[in-house]
């Protein structure tokens, strides 16, 4: 009998601030991909076994498989206005560009549900295959086709902004050349450009100038280029916990990282990851 159409698999880490024991280990804490994999492992380990791992991954009515379990809501402890909720959405290389719209909506919805909120203060978009070049050689032009694809993916977020679901928009790894090519295609200008922290003291001048001119804030991050390496993921899901059968290809579609920070006190109350994989 042919297996039913495989649906999606939703991986969650829960609040990793309260599980720092496993995650902030010496030597493993500087990389966010390790953080994601480690926190996923930790969450699987500490979660109840039900629903049982399903090697065939068949579910009725296209309900996703949750690993480890359907996420329990983790509502914010204080009033919503006390928080800055930031979400970073990683579209991963395995996902087709024309699926970005559905993926973005799905990802945002899951964060809102998890935190019990109706609005994200800042959403930062991370596009596949783009890394920040500190040289920022503005002479290199951008492929118009690339730019059009970025703009299309971004437009989903613009709509979510217009619907009041996202406050500010940001985009990661854009230097001045990309930004210059990209801006004319946006309706809602990004408020934030996020670049890797390693080079934060050598931010290229053209980017600083352009950000200043456009009123864009330059934020730092320390995320890996490959936020969810397939190999490590398979290691956890197949070899370690046997929630997926051996030999099945695992294709991560998207990852969201969310943080809820109590603004006036700088205390991080909740941080976690959600990811969707196509098995």
């Amino acid at each position: 009998m042919a297996a039913p159409t495989p649906t999606q698999c939703i991986l969650t880490t829960g609040n990793i601030m309260t599980a720092a024991h496993d995650i902030l280990r010496h030597g493993t804490m500087s990389k966010s991909s390790t953080e994601l994999i480690t926190s996923l492992r930790s969450h699987i380990r500490s979660s109840p076994l039900s629903p049982p791992p399903s090697p065939s991954l068949s579910t009725p009515n296209n309900i996703p498989i949750y690993i480890p379990t359907p996420p329990a809501p983790e509502p914010l402890a204080e009033e919503r206005s006390e928080y800055d909720v930031t979400v970073k959405l990683f579209h991963l290389p395995a996902a087709a560009a024309d699926a970005h719209e559905t993926h973005a909506q799905d990802a945002v919805k899951r964060v809102l549900t998890t935190l019990g909120i109706s609005k994200i203060d800042l959403l930062i978009l991370s596009l596949p295959g783009i890394s920040f070049d500190a040289e920022d050689s503005a002479v290199l032009g951008c492929d118009p086709e690339d730019v059009a694809r970025w703009a299309k993916t971004y437009s989903t977020l613009e709509m979510l902004h217009e619907d009041g679901v996202i406050g500010r928009l940001g985009i990661s790894e854009f230097g001045s050349a990309r930004l210059a090519a990209f801006l004319p295609h946006t309706r809602i200008k990004p408020s934030v450009i996020q670049i890797n922290v390693r080079n934060c003291c050598v931010v290229p001048k053209p980017l600083i100038l352009m950000a200043k001119k456009e009123g864009i804030e330059l934020l730092t991050h320390n995320d890996c280029n490959d936020i969810l390496p397939t190999e490590s993921l398979e290691g956890v899901l197949v070899d370690e916990f046997n929630v997926l059968e051996k030999g099945r290809a695992v294709a991560p579609m998207w990852v969201v990282k969310y943080t809820a920070v109590i603004r006036s006190r700088g205390v991080v109350e909740n941080k976690g990851y959600v990811s969707s994989i196509s098995p």
Binding site: S30, S32, D84, L218, L219, T220, V261, G266, V268, K271
Partner: peptide, 11 residues
């Protein structure tokens, strides 16, 4: 540093 990687910090 891990905390600073978690919150939004400008360059």
């Amino acid at each position: 540093n891990s905390y600073l990687d978690t919150v939004n910090v400008d360059v």
